[in-house]
Nucleic acid binder design. Sequence first.
DNA 1: GGATGTGAATGCATTCACAGCA
DNA 2: TGCTGTGAATGCATTCACATCC
Lengths: 218, 218
Amino acid sequence: MKVEEIPDPAVYRLSFYLRQLEAFRHLNRNTISSKQLGEALGYTDAQVRKDLAYFGQFGHPGIGYRVEELIARLKKILGTDKDCHALLVGVGNLGRALLTYKGFPRKGFHLVAAFDSDPGKIGRRYGELEIQAMSEIVRAVGTLRIRMAIVAVPPESAQDAVNQLVKAGIRGILNFAAVSLTVPEDVFVQSVDLALQLEQLSFRMSLGTIQNSLAAPM
Amino acid sequence: MKVEEIPDPAVYRLSFYLRQLEAFRHLNRNTISSKQLGEALGYTDAQVRKDLAYFGQFGHPGIGYRVEELIARLKKILGTDKDCHALLVGVGNLGRALLTYKGFPRKGFHLVAAFDSDPGKIGRRYGELEIQAMSEIVRAVGTLRIRMAIVAVPPESAQDAVNQLVKAGIRGILNFAAVSLTVPEDVFVQSVDLALQLEQLSFRMSLGTIQNSLAAPM
DNA sequence: GGATGTGAATGCATTCACAGCA
DNA sequence: TGCTGTGAATGCATTCACATCC
C-alpha cells in the first residue's frame, strides 16, 4: 500500500481513533473491537477495520485490537510518538491562549518561541516565552531546529507572516487566519477558521427552515 | 433539489466561497467566474458551479457571478444574513480569547453571556460580560433567546456542560473539548480539536518518511 | 466568445460479505 | 464463536462535456 493512495478522510479519522483509544485506556480497557471503537465515534465497524488496514495489520482475530499496542502504533504513524517543537507567530488574544493550551503538550507539541510584529509587544513575557521580533524567526528556526509553526495573526498580515516562515525553512503551518494562503508545494498548511465553524453550525441548525429560502427570490 | 441530498463537502466549501468572495469584494471586483473563484481556493471550475447549483441559479451566462449578489445569497443560505447570539461555557485561556475574537462579530455572531463552574471566576468581568454560574444557563437561554453555545471547558467536564446546555434548550454547539460528545439527534455539534489539527499536520509533514514505519515492526 | 447549469461518465470512499485465524 | 483483513459491490462526489444563454 502506497501512502499516496490512502484516502484523506481515513487519515483524519486516524486521529479520532487515537483520541478514543486513549479514552478507553483511561477506563482500563485492554482490548477493543472495531465495532466498539466505531460506535464510540459514529463509524461502522468495517470503516474502522479498513482505515486501520491501510496502515498495517494491528488486530488480533477473535480478540480485537489491543488498546495499548494500537495507541503506540497510531502515534508512530501520525508522528506524535516523539516530542515536537513549534513556534508561534501572532501573540494576540488567540495566540496567548494557544501558548498555554494544555492540549498541545499533552500530544507532545511544545511552543518554544513566539513572535509578533507589534514593537510594543516585543520583549514582553507570556508564561515561559519572551516575544521576539519577526526578524528573529530565521535565527530561531535554525538554532532550535523548528519545522512547524502556528499562525495567529490578523487575516491581512497572514500571507506576509507565512512568507517569512517559509523563507526561514518552516515546513508545516497551522493557520488560524481566515484567508486562503499560498505556499510552495513542499510546505503543508492546515487551516482552522473559527468563525467558519460557527457558520457551518448555523447552516446545519437551519436545515429545516432553509427549504423555502432556496427557492425564494430573496 | 432536497436539502438532505446536498453533499456535506459542498456545504463546507460554501463557507470558503463566501470568504473568498468577500476578499474579492474588498478588491472591488464586481463579477467573478467559477474558474477564478475555484483557482483562488484550489477547486476546479466545475466543482464551483455544481456546488452553487445545489442551492439555486446564481450565475449569469457569459458574465459569471455578481460578487455582491452571490455574497448576499450565500449568507442567507448559511444563515449569517442576520446577527445571532451565542453563549460561552468555560472561561479559561481559550474561552477568554474567544470572547474577544474579532472573527465572530465580523460574521454576525455575538457572545452575549459567559458561564464557568469555577466559583472563583463567577462575578468577574471579561470585556463586556460578567461570568455567571452554570446554574444560570437555563434562565439566560430563556430570556436572551439563545440557540447556540460554544464549549471551551476541559475534556473531563465537556459532556456534563453539554448536557446542561441541551437541557436548557440549546440547539447547536461549537465544541473545543477533545472528546466525542453524545447529544440528542435534534442538537448539532461542530467540534474543533486544536491539537488534532497539529497532529494531522505532523502526519502530512512526515509523508515521505512514513513509508518505512508502515512496514517496520515498531 | 465567454460563461453557466447539468446529465452522463468517471473515480473514490464506504459498506458488504466472507475466508481465515485465535 | 468472535473477530480481523480484504476483494467485490455499492453508493457518493467530482469531473467531463455540451446545450444554452448573454
